[in-house]
Design a protein around this nucleic acid. Structure first.
Lengths: 156, 156
DNA sequence: ACGTATAGTTGAAAATGTCAACGATTGATT
DNA sequence: AATCAATCGTTGACATTTTCAACTATACGT
């Protein structure tokens, strides 16, 4: 069999299951696109010793919103104990710092350091590249529209 | 503080981080909507002792396409060894059966039994209800458009 | 002041993900 | 025909992630 024919057959068998009704299921589509995107994102961020999770925390820490760990947990849909581990690691690397909450001394706000801001600037470039890879099959308008719909589904 | 004021404040702090630039990140939006959706899906499927994963396998087994385990792994973005575990469990429950591949005796095709088809019919109702909950903020047209875009991103 | 609730932290347990090896089978090459 | 590399399902080991229950310190309503 020629290489070209092999590729064709691979493509055919790869998409064979597309006919199944699960391809109409939003949950499945979400899961699959997210799975593929995670791989690319994490690959892109590995260069900076970041993963999707720590990258997310770093962005929020750098937002000027001074999120508390509880807010991070809620916003990122993670358990508070996972936030502890993420912030621990970023703090050890001097990318973020913890500060006691101003009104609530139980809470700790997480803020990016100058070093964190700097690393984030570089990582964001790589992440944007990864995102455009994930959405490569969409036009710019379609990609924008997809984000609009996702945001609306999440927050109305 | 009144209950109403509490609720308002909760809503306000809940969305406080929306201003962060991560809300523009497709990977994050995908992850978050998927996370929320998984909870609802699994909750809906628990009644039938199914999870998202086993439900997906059951749908594909019931599709008439007679997928092999390798095809299931590729399509569901799972490791082949995870498919083994999923099919083991469904087979134990007599919801699917394994059969040797027709052209390739290494492969095993997975097919739903009558019992599997029957359970799937019920589970699908619950799953559809969960999906419409996840996408409740979207109109029918928007939900359809979202799926179109997700499919296009995945398969062009 | 008291009781209840919440923020962060720790640590353990359960679930999931990743990977390397293996036997059986296939297909290509000689 | 014999061989060799590749693939399928399976197993088991290991790492990572998720989930949960406790605990301390702090906050807040009564």
């Amino acid at each position: 069999m020629t290489i070209e024919a092999q590729d064709e057959q691979q493509a055919a068998t790869k998409d064979r299951l597309l006919a199944a009704p699960i391809s109409q299921d939003a949950g499945f589509l979400l899961a699959k696109l997210h799975a593929g995107g995670s791989v690319l994102n994490n690959r892109a961020l590995a260069e900076f010793d970041l993963k999707e999770r720590s990258y997310s925390v770093l962005i929020l820490a750098n937002s000027g919103l001074e999120p508390t760990q509880r807010e991070l947990a809620d916003f990122l849909s993670l358990d508070p104990s996972q936030i502890v581990a993420l912030v621990d690691e970023l703090e050890k690397r001097k990318l973020v710092s913890r500060a006691p909450g101003k009104q609530d001394r139980r809470a700790k706000t997480v803020t990016a350091t100058a070093k964190g801001t700097q690393l984030l600037a570089q990582a964001a470039v790589a992440a944007r590249r990864a995102e455009s890879e994930v959405l490569a099959a969409l036009s710019d308008e379609e990609a924008a529209q997809l984000k609009v719909l996702l945001r609306k589904a999440l927050w109305g």
